[in-house]
Design a protein around this nucleic acid. Sequence first.
DNA 1: TGATGAACATACTACCGGGTATGTTGTCAA
DNA 2: TTGACAACATACCCGGTAGTATGTTCATCA
Lengths: 214, 214
Amino acid sequence: MTLDVREHNLDSSRLDILRAAATCFMERGYAAASIDEVARSLGATKGRIYHHYPSKADLFADVFRTGMDMNYEAIAPYRDLAGPALPRWRRMAFAHVMQMITTRAFQRAVWIGVEMHLRGATTPEQRTVFNELIAYRSAYGDVFRETLRQGRAEGVFFYEDLSITNQLMFMTLNSPIFWYSPRSGETLADIEHLATQVVDFAEGGLVTRKEQAA
Amino acid sequence: MTLDVREHNLDSSRLDILRAAATCFMERGYAAASIDEVARSLGATKGRIYHHYPSKADLFADVFRTGMDMNYEAIAPYRDLAGPALPRWRRMAFAHVMQMITTRAFQRAVWIGVEMHLRGATTPEQRTVFNELIAYRSAYGDVFRETLRQGRAEGVFFYEDLSITNQLMFMTLNSPIFWYSPRSGETLADIEHLATQVVDFAEGGLVTRKEQAA
DNA sequence: TGATGAACATACTACCGGGTATGTTGTCAA
DNA sequence: TTGACAACATACCCGGTAGTATGTTCATCA
């Protein structure tokens, strides 16, 4: 319950549990996913999971945290690029979408976590851990948010409300976690092509000058 | 279990149940929402709900269906407008977004239902009812889809893959069901202003010509 | 080599929630 | 007036699941 954001000891057994848990949470949702099922998918039993995690909520939190770690890592090469906002945004957005596709299960869990937080579907004990996670994810959103702000200042992005626009942009970039499903014989190029279409759509939403008239 | 899509007898008692159920499903999700809680929020008990619905799944199905009914009704005045695709699309999209905001609980339930179907989180008995509902919602999506196709033929919309674009567009238009929350003192004009920003973003995603080069 | 603890499995408890069976009350028609 | 039925409430059953308590195995180290 007091796992620090930065200190994971990701031995391979824990990693296996995390992957299995992410998949279960993705397929069933938080409430419907059972610890027994996660264990079964590993060919193990509850004992293994409760040996590593004190509760279901803590397991879920670790999946969430790991998913966010992956996202930070994905945009790390681009977030501090100097220069105009648009090319930096494109690189970050593309990396983000690729992450959504390639680590879908974890990203879905992140989504579920955010939803639970927004709905207040957390017990007081979970609140502390959850608030930390939400802040972690919030800071990630702010990286994009700042780029949006810069882009507007440069006159390449057009929008009224920064918060709403950031929401809309993330909705688009995150959307593959819902509708993407891997096809047999799919190459990396295929996935990148997909991601490009997603980024293009989002970019269009940002760069288009809107008329003032109703 | 064999409620026809078109034949509702929406007496007021059932309507109250539907509204309460929609709210609970929105706040907790399908699995975590309990019949007891729905009843409690009505100042009643399970007996009332099971008198009207044979199962939780059937109750949920009716919420889903009612939500979709509202959507069809919302775009009805515009869907058969003659003329260019863009203005028709804007009217439909705006009406759709307004629906997402004003009937949020029902629309959230629809989303949950679609998600459950995509994940295959349905028992064989539910399948029949669910397939019908998904088809109902699919036909609704096709109304927009057809407009997107026409818009591309007219040279005002630019995109590669119709299915993906339709997904991205709906993701944007539906997004208020996640991040919108009513503010005190909010007027209809405020909500319409919000909806306009959402539609603008989506329109930008559709009308922007994308470069061929990688 | 014996002891210790990590890494699990097994067995069990407590509780919650879907569903059912049955009781109760008001209404309306004959 | 009564009886029949709709519209619930009450009481109960039962399967599933989070969490716990305890047993077991294996490696490591003094």
